[in-house]
Design a protein around this nucleic acid. Structure first.
Lengths: 347, 347
DNA sequence: TAGGTCATGAGGCACGTACCTCAATCCAAA
DNA sequence: TTTGGATTGAGGTACGTGCCTCATGACCTA
């Protein structure tokens, strides 16, 4: 186990000695610099594996003497969850700075692929090593992500993924599983069956589409007595959602449940309360924000499925660090868990 | 905002200049070394605040040139969750090592305060900066924790807390909230009311006692139709739990629900299946392990509330680092969330 | 006033890696 | 064999902090 007498951590010097090469060559291999024959590089790799060398992150960051520049691009507007996300970024900024990561945040027009693409196009690799975006599904966005990657900006997706692009990593919950969870809970809440309405923000958002797919699959497979109405799109917007839900309630006096897989929950709660049927209808929503919190407390919402923004930002920063440093895409990032909140376990 | 011309991070040198003292004095203040007048120390603190200095963690760790020594003390035995916890520690070890944290793990006899106390007493501050323990509630443990603290070993609790001791930090979920969640779910699952049995491992464990309190409170306040049977103690042990649940099922042919807030889930599932009533009784359990996973898949268990061991270990390591370094107890640690799993969102 | 203690300053080395320059060596093609 | 580019070695400095020694001055007490 211990190739070096005392119990000391292996350093680049040890690697050089073990491989029978100079420090400079080890350095070239470790940092992917040119001018090393394949055979020599292999010798070094073998030595690294043999003595179990691990680059000292502290020393590495220190020696680089340069901050990692990160840019978060987050939708603006009335979406409370996005505000929460931006707030989480702000909270982490100072801690991140002490770990040599410099964070910049941009807010852009929501649900607008072109705005996102344009913002990405404006990223200069000299002042942005890594961009973290909440992706919308659009060809122009895919093109902009790929272009940024070619320019040398690592792109990661957050909350909503963009699988067919050059994005290096996705940070967020498993949205299909989230939808399944909602379906499994709602099914158990309605042992007699009934009509359940589904509300989305926009099915062009990958996360919304995934949730819908999971939800519908579970109800179909396990709860045949439950019928789905919709999905209807409220564009993550309070007043639009309120109007739509109002119509819905008027048209279906026997509605037994609602699953809002997008935002706009303030409108949902308002419409439920206006109809006088809040509490009589089982409601599941997403993201613990002020409106959903109030909805839980008043009894208008039964369950909120939550993705922890702080956890996501932490994971994003960790991923950015290892992507920008290690270079090898095999960073160990633990998945984001789906949280659950009822009135009785609100924080 | 930026007191130093260029956008460069503030260093100890900047602090010294701003405070009008020497580097040595800044160093003495920063690291709590003696030989500084109170007035001078205040000047330095003021300068730190004014220019927003933050110690560079990388450089600090590097300069110490010494690993942080951590010792995890985790119950042994058949408790699957504890095995999962130990496994999570093992998985993190190598990453932690590259961040200069050396991890050691001890497994001790479960549910035995004296074994834990004895293990703590054996900790030498020279080879353990910080001990992370799964606490059982016993006077001998409190005494051992306090003694270790006096010797200079920082103690943190994991999963089960020990509030009246010198432990510096607790890492784990809010177990009262977890119990409330179980109660709120089970109540909604049983709109007609009915009898619900509660099984615990040992009420001497703080986490078990907290869960019970939360569970009972919600049922009493919101679901008057649901009656609690128990709690009965299965000592987190498979066969004991199976026997107890077998008796329970025989004595209560009309049992509508079970909440197992401890371990021993393999026994619970076995007894349910032996009785032929699995699937007809709503069951909520804790911790996603092999037995609970199988229970979910077979339909014997409806919901598993989970605390993510990987997340807990990550949080523990972060806390240990900032405690051992910063010294000030005000480390920003984000709370561990309660995860929820049904058959349909198993990972 | 002499001797002592305490507070502070000045300076330097170390930690492990990144990145630079310059010289030396190797190898293949001419 | 010569030439020239590719490869490798040797050695240095820098990053920001921790920790050490030694010198200096201030202040107190006998």
């Amino acid at each position: 186990m211990n190739e070096i007498g005392l119990s000391r951590r292996a350093t680049v010097h040890d690697v050089a000695r073990a491989a029978g090469v100079s420090l400079a060559t080890v350095d070239r291999v470790l940092n992917g610099r040119p001018g090393v024959r394949a055979a020599t590089a292999e010798k070094v790799e073998a030595a690294i594996a043999a003595i179990g060398f691990q680059r000292d992150l502290s020393a590495s960051l220190l020696a680089r003497a340069r901050d990692l520049k990160l840019t978060f691009i987050i939708p603006d507007g009335s979406n409370e969850f996005m505000a929460r996300l931006a707030e989480a970024v702000r909270r982490r900024a100072s801690q991140a700075l002490s770990e040599r990561m410099h964070i910049q945040t941009r807010r852009i027009k929501p649900l607008d692929g072109d705005a996102l693409a344009h913002s990405l196009d404006g990223l200069d690799p000299r002042d942005c090593d890594c961009a973290i975006i909440v992706a919308s599904q659009a060809p122009s966005v895919v093109a902009a992500v790929d272009a940024a990657s070619r320019r040398g900006v690592v792109v990661m997706t957050l909350v909503s993924d963009l699988p067919d692009s050059q994005r290096r990593h996705f940070i967020g919950i498993d949205n299909v599983a989230a939808g399944r969870t909602a379906g499994a809970l709602l099914g158990r809440f309605l042992p007699q069956g009934g009509k359940v309405a589904v509300i989305a923000g926009s099915l062009h958002l990958r996360d919304h589409a995934d949730r819908l797919a999971g939800f519908a699959a579970v109800l179909e497979a396990e709860f045949a007595g439950v019928a789905i109405i919709g999905p209807i799109e409220g564009h993550d917007e309070r007043s639009q959602t309120a109007t739509l839900v109002g119509d819905l309630l008027a048209r279906h006096p026997d509605l037994a449940g609602v699953y809002n897989l997008g935002a706009g929950n303030a409108g949902l709660v308002a419409a439920l309360q206006a109809s006088g049927r809040a509490g009589a209808i089982r409601v599941i929503a997403h993201e613990l924000t002020e409106p959903t919190r109030r909805g839980l407390q008043s009894g208008a919402i039964d369950v909120v499925l939550d993705q922890n923004p702080d956890g996501e930002i932490r994971a994003a920063l960790a991923a950015a660090r290892s992507l920008a440093l290690g270079g090898n895409g095999s960073a160990v990032i633990d998945p984001i868990e789906i949280g659950i909140f009822l009135r009785d376990n609100l924080r």
